[in-house]
Design a protein around this nucleic acid. Structure first.
Lengths: 216, 216
DNA sequence: GCGTAACCTTACGCACGAGTAGGTATGCTC
DNA sequence: GAGCATACCTACTCGTGCGTAAGGTTACGC
């Protein structure tokens, strides 16, 4: 239909690997804007500058496409964090670097990341996938706390540890949401604030402090 | 079709108010199990023991139905919290009672609440609705912190306050998710754990402690 | 220069589920 | 016990959007 008459061919042929990345970029963008269901494969294809059957040929079903997005973004994030928080550092230093990397990542992928995660949380097929990633993060944080505790010669039940880690991860994600919704906010500063909440609290706990409910 | 021949009429006629509650119960259940989109009006109707047009007659569109669910559950939750945390108590006492009420509520509405919130977060039309509620909660927490600070003669920028409150609320919601996924867990104990993280951290902050990033 | 394979297209089938039209039974009022 | 309002049903329409069949076109090897 669109006559390719002009000397400059409107669109070039590209190798598979390149197209796949373009498609994933488009998919992340559209999924995050519209949400999984409201996003149409047609729109994703159009946004990627390609036609629909190509998407199916390369990335498969809509669900599979979404999972691919999740994986790519999730892996990138995990790598950013893991690369920053070397395991041989003291706990506070690790936590700080991890947080900074995390918020830096979210700040750089505002629309992409946060909304993808907001999406995946709700939809049945993906919630598990997301929970797994989240679980790995929680484990890392719990391991960090546990290590710090052992250094101090103290110990705490594994459930307690897990729950505290869970709370910390939750607080961090919550601030990430906040950051994603406030384009003017500074990731570095947000990380500092989170560090204050997390570490000042954690430091107390590590010192053996404990709060107990009044009159049982 | 189903002959009502037997002496006991299979289903009685019920006044509107009752049926509406049944429908809402069914809707909450199905929406939380399946997610907003995967849930079908047919299934909700069937689960409520009623036929589809009735649902439309009483509660309107699928979206309107979901909003109705959101409102009912949200109001219940807010009332549970507000009823527990009287504003004339000291900050730690207020926080503790609020947390206990909150986790108690989630524990009692496990499948209903948590998943409804997980849902609403992702879907475009409802995210705003949810954000408003959440915002009110954040404000309450921030107000509490601010009050405690003023009593101590200290002050902090409004953004800092908001962000800390945001982190606290996020951590709490995260633990609520955890609670919803762990049927064997005890709400009271979870509240205590959350209180440890929140208060021990908050107490430090209220004392004027602050963490700063190493070598700028 | 010509075949072949990868790239890319238009145009459709089809299922699924929201929302509705129109009709039936039941309780309540006088 | 007639009439009216309200509760309730079966059985349909119709849009939307996923996924695909079948066929063009460009690059590249030989």
């Amino acid at each position: 239909m669109l006559a390719r008459v002009s000397s400059t061919p409107t669109f070039k042929r590209l190798p598979r690997a390149v197209r796949e990345q373009q498609m994933l970029d488009a998919a992340v963008k559209v999924f995050s804007r519209r949400g999984f269901h409201a996003a149409s494969m047609d729109e994703i294809a159009e946004d990627a500058g390609i036609s629909k059957p190509m998407v199916y040929a390369y990335l498969g079903t809509k669900e599979e496409l979404f999972v691919a997005c999740l994986h790519r973004e999730g892996t990138r994030m995990m790598e950013a964090i893991a690369g920053a928080a070397a395991p041989d550092l003291p706990a506070d230093e690790r936590l700080w670097r991890g947080l900074r990397a995390f918020f830096g990542f979210v700040g750089a992928h505002r629309d992409g990341w946060a909304v993808l995660y907001r999406q995946a949380r709700g939809e049945q097929p993906f919630a598990g996938e997301l929970a797994t990633m989240r679980g790995r993060l929680v484990e890392v944080v719990a391991g960090m706390l546990d290590h710090a505790l052992r250094v101090e010669g103290r110990e705490v039940g594994p459930t307690d540890l897990e729950v505290v880690a869970y709370a910390l991860v939750g607080a961090t994600e919550s601030l990430a949401d906040w950051l994603a919704d406030h384009p003017e906010a500074d990731p570095e500063k947000t990380a500092t604030r989170m560090m204050n909440v997390a570490w000042l609290g954690a430091a107390q706990l590590l010192d053996g402090a404990a709060w107990h409910p009044p009159q049982s």
